[in-house]
């Protein structure tokens, strides 16, 4: 029973935002010691499992080509393409971005989007511009602007989370095969796992896409209410 304290070390370590590497190192040593492994056995387990889980880190082999593409304008080209979607409503634009983000992440292009790479310079301003068009060109009330920006960030995050696992060389897939193959002496193929990410990815698109399209209608209602309120304030002056 006492070995479960090792799990507690992991939970406390991550929850109190210690450096994750140190948390893993300390939790490994503590758990090994509580499980009555000798120091020599602990070192041996660290070494053997590290050797048999190297496949988890091999995605680094793709960094030179991705780096080469980025320095030649990969992210900028992605933005040029998205810029062509200018005339959609907020919800439709974000739904389409969600789909694009899922599809590109599924083929290994996780880095072309992201909060700094695409949401701030491109997605949030375009979503806001679409909402302003809906508002007859008037600037958005603060609360609604916040919600539009939040949805821009949300579409990006949901898209990459539920797209990237279809790419077989992503950390989470390799972690599963590395961990399961090293720990339980079995054999899982990354490709099988990647295929099983597809049903959830489809659900994610349907669920979040539907919510974004509904957001269009909510936006309309809220703009009407907000404008009515500001008109009342205007006439009260």
């Amino acid at each position: 029973m006492i070995v479960l304290l090792g799990v507690l070390v992991v939970i406390l370590g991550f929850a109190t935002r210690r450096n994750p590497l140190l948390v893993v190192g300390v939790a490994g040593i503590v758990t090994g010691a509580l499980g009555k492994l000798s120091p020599d056995e602990i070192l041996k387990t660290f070494g053997e499992s590290f050797a048999s889980s190297r496949s988890v880190t091999i995605f680094a082999i793709t960094l030179p080509v991705i780096g080469l593409l980025e320095r030649n304008g990969l992210q900028q080209q992605a933005r040029i393409l998205i810029g062509k979607l200018g005339n959609l409503t907020t919800g439709r634009f974000l739904t389409l971005y969600l789909l694009l983000r899922q599809l590109t992440a599924a083929v290994g292009l996780q880095t072309i989007g992201g909060p700094a790479q695409s949401v701030r310079p491109m997605i949030a301003p375009m979503a806001e511009a679409a909402a302003e068009r809906r508002n007859g060109g008037r600037p958005l009330p603060e609360a609604i602007r916040e919600k539009v920006r939040s949805h821009a960030a949300g579409a990006d995050t949901v898209g990459v989370f539920f797209g990237e696992d279809i790419f077989l060389a992503i950390g989470s897939i390799l972690l599963i095969t590395g961990l399961v193959n090293a720990t339980y002496h079995t054999h899982l193929e990354p490709l099988d796992l990647a295929l099983w990410a597809i049903p959830t990815a489809a659900c994610a698109f349907l669920v979040h896409g539907a919510r974004l399209l509904r957001f269009d209608r909510a936006l309309e209602r809220e703009l009407v209410v907000a404008n009515a309120e500001s008109d009342v304030e205007e006439s009260a002056k």
Binding site: V24, G28, T31, K36, L37, R54, L175, G178
Partner: peptide, 23 residues
């Protein structure tokens, strides 16, 4: 970059120490 691999290592240590059986 190294975190996923080290979490796989931690999983193996959990197994060797008997965490799986206890849980």
């Amino acid at each position: 970059l190294l975190l996923p691999q080290l979490l796989a290592v931690l999983g193996a240590i959990f197994q060797a120490a008997g965490v799986g059986t206890q849980v």
